[in-house]
């Protein structure tokens, strides 16, 4: 049982960066923009937030900096795709190359120069698995729900707020209208440009926090001068947007499920140990299959929703299409 609880706890830890990335990307996509550059945005958020956090020795300022760095990437993306009408797919891919490149550039120069900054003990303690006082002492439930680092709770709160924003506010209605049919939204007086800019920036800012989480918690702030901190998480987040049917609320469950899949590779022994007779087949399946599973599941879901032709999949109709008023 202890091992199983550990496994769940690890799943949540692995899933949290996905929660940020997915929630951010949902906001962006709901306004009609397909940003394939989540990986790059998270990388920029990670390095910007981490440097600021270690410099000021403050977690909150670091999170804000990660948000701002992510939002700046979003500003660049919005400027290129909304104002300059550049192709969204291509801009997103360029963002990935640029963002990861910037991360490596800064990281490598710091490593070879003054040395890559380390988190102070105080900062490291803040991002530790401190949990919520008192509540975390409840047996089992305390471990499962109240034993995490502050990012986990921040992520859940942001996801819930984003759900309320998108589906329960007037502005959210406008955002969804822009994503579904910008020409119609324009016709009733919605400012398309402003909605798109703000939501792309908001979405990318949230992705940036996810990058910081990866750096501070999962990578413990260590950089080896070679591998970047994001390592594919941004792409999984894009997959998860589809899996979560473009709903930040579903993204909460979805990202912990994907986190579970990601940690299965390393921790499946713990799962098997619960019921060895029935679950031993899990050990026989190669680890790569578990890594592939998030993408395989998403592909299957994509195909199934398209076969059923259901519109409640949540995919914005105008996703990936630039809006140019004269084409209306």
């Amino acid at each position: 049982m202890e091992a199983f609880i550990q496994f769940i706890v690890q799943s949540v830890r692995y899933g949290t960066p996905l929660l940020f990335g997915t929630t951010g990307e949902i906001i962006t996509q709901k306004s009609g923009s397909l940003n394939l550059g989540v990986e790059g945005v998270m990388a920029v958020g990670a390095i910007g937030g981490f440097l600021f956090a270690t410099w000021t020795n403050s977690l909150i300022l670091g999170i804000l900096a990660a948000f701002v760095c992510g939002a700046l990437c979003g500003l660049l993306f919005a400027f290129l795709t909304v104002t300059l009408q550049a192709n969204q797919n291509v801009t997103g891919l360029a963002m990935t190359i640029f963002g990861v490149g910037l991360f490596q550039f800064i990281g490598q120069n710091l490593t070879s120069g003054s040395g890559f900054p380390a988190m102070s003990a105080e900062l490291a303690a803040k991002v530790g698995e401190n949990g919520i006082p008192l509540l975390r002492d409840i047996p089992v439930v305390g471990d499962l729900l109240f034993s995490y680092n502050p990012f986990v709770y921040l992520g859940v709160v942001i996801a819930v707020l984003c759900w309320v924003y998108l589906f329960r506010t007037r502005t959210g209605l406008k955002v969804r209208a822009v994503g579904e049919n910008p020409a119609a939204a324009d016709g009733v007086g919605v400012n398309i440009t402003r909605i798109k800019y703000l939501n792309i920036m908001l979405g990318c800012g949230i992705c940036g926090i996810g990058g910081l989480y990866l750096g501070m918690v999962l990578r413990s702030g260590r950089y080896d001068g070679y591998g970047d901190w994001i390592a594919g998480y941004g792409w999984i987040a894009i997959a998860l947007v589809i899996f979560a049917a473009w709903s930040p609320a579903k993204a909460i469950g979805g990202s912990f499920l994907f986190g579970l899949l990601l940690s299965l590779q390393a921790y499946r022994g713990a799962v098997v140990s619960i019921w060895p007779a029935g679950l031993s087949w899990m050990n026989a399946i190669p680890g790569e299959f578990y890594q592939m599973l998030p993408f395989l599941l998403t592909a299957v879901i994509l195909v199934i929703t398209s076969i059923r032709k259901k519109k409640d999949g949540g995919s914005p109709t105008a996703l990936g299409l630039n809006y140019y008023r004269e084409d209306r």
Partner: peptide
């Protein structure tokens, strides 16, 4: 640093995208 190539590549791509 090896990342110079990536970052230059990124800048060139953004620039061409913008000028496009």
């Amino acid at each position: 640093s090896a990342a110079s190539a990536d970052i230059l590549q990124g800048i060139i791509l953004f620039s061409v995208l913008a000028f496009d």
